[in-house]
Design a protein around this nucleic acid. Structure first.
Lengths: 330, 330
DNA sequence: CACCCCTCAGGGAGCGCTCCCTCACCCTTC
DNA sequence: GAAGGGTGAGGGAGCGCTCCCTGAGGGGTG
């Protein structure tokens, strides 16, 4: 049960601890015969270096904290974003030999815990997924001196981030609806304390500007339920609308359901376009047209950014491009 | 930048390192006035214990590895299961002050890395989510002597696990279809190298047994795509079928889509029942009837099991109950 | 009043590793 | 042949913490 230590391996191999350490860490200034005899001792004893002891002296952990900061029923927590981001990040870090410590910061208490944890030197860097604009965590973490990269724009302007071209993507969607000859185009926004939501709304407005069409806005909160509700509201307020741009796919899915229940045909009566192009978008009835933003690419870019920061790289934001995926709903 | 150490705090407070350590660790054998003066020094210096140093001597890490072992396009990786499990587990462990080290083991190489990692003493225990029956990881981890709990049944019979009553749930679903007067009830199975799949198929057969109805089986692999494909196959082979029990919701969603494309009305022409009751089940058109298995409860139970094992508890499997959630599709 | 016991603070070894420094040895070079 | 330089192994301090052990002091008991 008791694991062998460096000293045991050294004794077995008949060399010094230093030499074993060199071999273990792949240093090149070791004679081949020493290397071989050490390797064999390592094999025979099933030696695995003790992580804590190594961390203690090197001050590095090869671990990265991925902090998902969001209330329990918040935006990030929703399936597609969460699992795509977490999975991609995990894969990407695994590839460079780093571990992922996943932390859900869903309350002020757990946010405080995160700060203490990070201060405790458990990790070499932090990747932050905090969609809520007013989240205090980015600012707090930025102050700690540890490398921090954010999956999206935050209120902490000194935290390097990766962001989508949200306005551009929304414009793409609305222009597409205009091209299809739609005349009364509404939008369902996300919560307006999020940059994403504001920028997507801005893009919607920009596309409509100069076309003589007025904007019709309903507020959602990025959940399916809110999408359905906003859609019902819109139909009530403006029964003649013939297109909707939802600021994310989940709300678009909710909207599709509300339209179905209201007896409107999609896309014949009302065209629907979403944003994010989550996997489920291809499986709605009818299949959903959406702005493809590739969260996976965004997540990958964030990991790269963080790794670069850990290596002492520059603190430059990254903006990701979008494209429109046209399916049956428009 | 340099963080203060125990010794610095002790010097500041004018007491010994031992006393500071006792205060930090909440031992009760400390005089109140010493406690206060230490607390104040801790506050003033912003002291946070060094994790590596503590781990080194205590041999505990307060961290748990959550290993998701599955090929990249495998079962577990799909959104609902992955995010529900990971999120629930993370919350549950957070609540008891333990950290989650998330590891995706998607290849043999990364599985080997997991073993080395666990051997390195980074974690106090391992929670395993490995749906593939032939996965070698459970066996390997079980050998290491560290507490291991599995989210589901595995080939390693000595690994304590939490499992659903799969057969019972499937029976529930099929009996419900029989009650609705359906006569030709097909099933779409999951991959048959999974216990889940085999047990659900067994339940389907058990429910049909003695009713004079024959079983109609198509193979799927728990993905949406496979569900759609299997459904098309079934319609071709047996155009008169009037009900389908899909072994999970994702395949049920795929089946709904295939039925829609084939011009069959649900539930009028064909009733559909899924398994798992994922969130998306309520948002299909028509909304999906499903066996509610509560992955969240299952995940929670697994965490509890693991924590109990770490405390030296007994290695007893846990079986979770199911219920049927009837919606529009049946 | 002497003795013992109990409580609680301090001293210091030691966890397993890395990395700096020293030193032995060999090859050049004049 | 002696001096200088370079290569690579070994010795050992020290990372920051916990925890065992010692011993001081106070209170209780016969």
């Amino acid at each position: 049960m008791k694991r062998p230590t460096l000293a045991v391996v050294a004794a077995r191999a008949g060399v010094s601890k230093s030499s074993v350490s060199r071999v273990i860490n792949g240093e090149t200034t070791v004679a081949p015969e020493i290397r071989d005899v050490v390797m064999q001792a390592v094999q025979e004893l099933g030696y695995v270096p003790n992580a804590a002891a190594r961390n203690l002296v090197t001050r590095r952990t090869d671990a990265v904290a991925v902090v998902v900061s969001d209330p329990p029923k918040g935006v990030v927590s929703d399936d597609p974003l969460f699992s795509t981001v977490v999975r991609t990040v995990s894969r990407e870090l695994e590839a460079v030999g780093r571990r992922v410590v996943l932390i859900l910061a869903e309350s002020d208490e757990s946010r405080a815990r995160v700060e203490r944890y990070v201060a405790g030197g458990h990790v070499d860097g932090v990747m932050l997924v905090a969609l809520h604009g007013a989240d205090p965590l980015p600012v707090a973490l930025a102050r700690m001196g540890l490398p921090v990269a954010s999956f999206n724009r935050t209120a902490a302007t000194d935290v390097p981030y990766v962001a989508l071209d949200n306005a551009g993507g929304a414009e793409l969607a609305v222009r597409h609806l205009l091209d299809r000859g739609r005349r009364r185009i509404a939008t369902i926004t996300g919560p307006l304390d999020l940059y994403e939501s504001r920028e997507r709304l801005e893009g919607y407005r920009a596309a409509l500007r100069g076309t003589g069409r007025r904007s019709i806005v309903a507020l959602g909160d990025f959940t399916r339920v809110s999408g359905a509700e906003a859609m019902r509201q819109l139909l009530e307020d403006d029964p003649d609308l013939d297109a909707v741009f939802a600021a994310n796919d989940l709300m678009a899915i909710g909207a599709l359901r509300a339209l179905h229940q209201a007896g409107r045909r999609v896309p014949d009566d009302v065209a629907v376009v979403g944003f994010d192009d989550i996997e489920a978008a291809a499986y709605t009835t009818p299949a959903l047209t959406s702005v493809r933003s590739s969260m996976a690419d965004q997540a990958t870019a964030t990991v790269r950014l963080l790794l670069a920061l850990i290596e002492g790289g520059p603190r430059k934001p990254v903006i990701m491009p979008n494209e429109l995926v046209v399916r049956e709903s428009s």
